[in-house]
Write a protein that binds this DNA or RNA. Sequence first.
DNA 1: TAGAAAGCTGAAAATGACTTGCAATTGAGA
DNA 2: TCTCAATTGCAAGTCATTTTCAGCTTTCTA
Lengths: 150, 150
Amino acid sequence: MDALIEGFKQFIKKRGLKYTSEREEILREILSTKDHFDVDTLYLQLKSKNSKISKASIYRTIPLLIEGGYIQEVYKKGGQSYYEVTLNKRPHLHFICIKCSEVKEAYDPRLNELIDDLERASNYRFLTFHLEIFGLCPSCREGKVSHETQ
Amino acid sequence: MDALIEGFKQFIKKRGLKYTSEREEILREILSTKDHFDVDTLYLQLKSKNSKISKASIYRTIPLLIEGGYIQEVYKKGGQSYYEVTLNKRPHLHFICIKCSEVKEAYDPRLNELIDDLERASNYRFLTFHLEIFGLCPSCREGKVSHETQ
DNA sequence: TAGAAAGCTGAAAATGACTTGCAATTGAGA
DNA sequence: TCTCAATTGCAAGTCATTTTCAGCTTTCTA
Ligand SMILES: [Mn+2]
Ligand SMILES: [Mn+2]
Ligand SMILES: [Zn+2]
Ligand SMILES: [Zn+2]
């Protein structure tokens, strides 16, 4: 249906890999997710739709999706990696509340400028970056007790 | 000997904790380290000096040192956390080569300005941040075509 | 300064995210 | 349809970090 899905199929085939229903299903589920996601959440989402896909397959598919440019790892929290769909996303930073674990995105053109400048001024080749700011979100700084907690 | 060590002792006692030789030894070793370090390296360093301190104690002491402002977690690499002494360090970013794993620090006042601005413009309380840039270091980008993946 | 309660410590077991081995299954070209 | 390498689910394995627990210090008090 989607040009994106078709592109993924071509990407997979071009690499001499097999285009499986599992791989497509995983990509479709990810594309339907607007938020950041981790493997466990994705697994449960698929399971709730009666999918039989295993976590192992998700773990094996994620590197492919990253190499294909479909998703990116965007931050780590509580020992797990979180990802998001790359499409329609510009580089941005993540604020992580150390109390309630809420994550919020923020964009600032100065960040991209800064990173571009740093790359130009160096002999490095920059590929991606993570900017994670840790602190207290508005409600948690109010000394409220959070019920969501980790 | 050091005012820093004495300050740590006060910090520990003020919290109603016990000031043990292990805690002091760990702090001393960390202060003698100029570079970034991880738990394993620190453990082996201590061991090579005939210290009997266990990894468990290191893992238990690190949060205290962070809360006391003596060290900070500065990035994660290969599934491990890396730390550095906070003293005499300004906030900075880390460039991580995805090929050789080399890590290099970089400072840019614009980064701090940006972060300060973002905090002022929000209702968040910022405590720390990690800016990790992933890419290829000068020697690794020299097209030594690698088949070693990544 | 002895004695006891509260904290600590090392060693080992437990955790939890992620990876890997393997036998059965499936995709894709012939 | 046949063939076989790639892929999958499951279970076992890794590995950093956490936790359990019994013995050992630190502190406080009498
Ligand atoms: Mn994001
Ligand atoms: Mn640093
Ligand atoms: Zn919060
Ligand atoms: Zn390199």
